[in-house]
Computed example of a mutant assay.
Amino acid sequence: MGDARGWYPCFSRPFNDWEMEAVVSLLSFLQGKRLFVGMEDRVLWNASKNEIFSVKSLYNTLDSSGAVPFPWRIIWSPCVPTKVGFFAWEASWGKVLTQDQLKRRGWILANKCFLCCDEEETINHILIHCPKARVLWNLVFSLFGVN
């Protein structure tokens, strides 16, 4: 609702306790925003330079978390065998069917790493953190001269 002095919110019902934080956040966001009288309403996408929505601008917005960019060009290189590329892709997204994934899908089983028998079997443990896998990685890296 509004008049010549400005506008004020009018809500159709009282808020629940769990809604108050969101309402305060909304009102804080709206505070100081100006309305331009006589200007047509329009939707702008601030994540792109031309203020027009595109899937690429949405992806770039979601991907701008500051994390190291995913090396998809290496995985999908013609030099990498297709099966290796698919495995690397699934491993990077945590979709390899390890015992922890099977447990999430309702399978009942004892979850132990089959290499070290110490930790739960997860993709990160099998490929990175398992002591037996670390020995294997050190061997592979030493073959290529990587420390």
Rank of each mutant, 00 (worst) to 15 (best):
G2M: 01
D3W: 12
R5Q: 11
R5L: 09
G6M: 04
W7G: 14
Y8V: 04
P9S: 08
C10W: 12
C10R: 15
F11H: 10
R13A: 13
R13Y: 05
N16K: 14
W18H: 14
E19I: 06
E21T: 11
A22C: 05
A22W: 04
V24Q: 15
V24A: 13
V24Y: 13
V24K: 15
L27I: 02
L27S: 02
F29M: 06
F29Y: 10
F29A: 07
K33D: 01
K33F: 06
R34K: 14
L35D: 12
L35P: 01
V37K: 12
V37E: 12
M39Q: 15
E40M: 13
R42C: 15
R42T: 11
R42K: 15
V43S: 07
V43R: 10
L44T: 07
W45T: 06
A47M: 12
S48I: 04
I52N: 08
I52T: 09
S57G: 07
L62M: 10
L62H: 01
D63E: 11
S65V: 07
S65D: 12
S65F: 01
G66I: 07
G66Y: 04
A67R: 10
A67V: 04
V68A: 12
V68H: 08
P69K: 09
F70P: 00
F70G: 02
P71T: 05
R73T: 10
C79R: 13
P81C: 02
T82D: 05
G85D: 02
F87S: 01
F87K: 00
W89F: 11
W89H: 09
A91L: 12
S92P: 01
S92Q: 03
W93V: 01
W93H: 15
W93D: 00
G94H: 07
G94F: 06
L97N: 06
L97T: 04
T98L: 03
Q99G: 05
L102C: 03
K103W: 00
R104G: 07
R105P: 01
G106E: 09
G106C: 10
L109Y: 05
L109P: 04
A110P: 01
K112F: 15
C113N: 02
L115R: 09
L115W: 08
C116N: 04
D118N: 11
E121R: 03
T122V: 04
I123T: 14
N124K: 14
I126P: 00
L127T: 07
I128L: 15
H129D: 14
P131W: 15
K132D: 02
R134D: 00
V135M: 13
V135D: 10
V135N: 11
L136W: 13
W137S: 02
N138D: 14
V140E: 00
F141C: 15
S142T: 09
L143T: 08
L143G: 14
V146C: 08
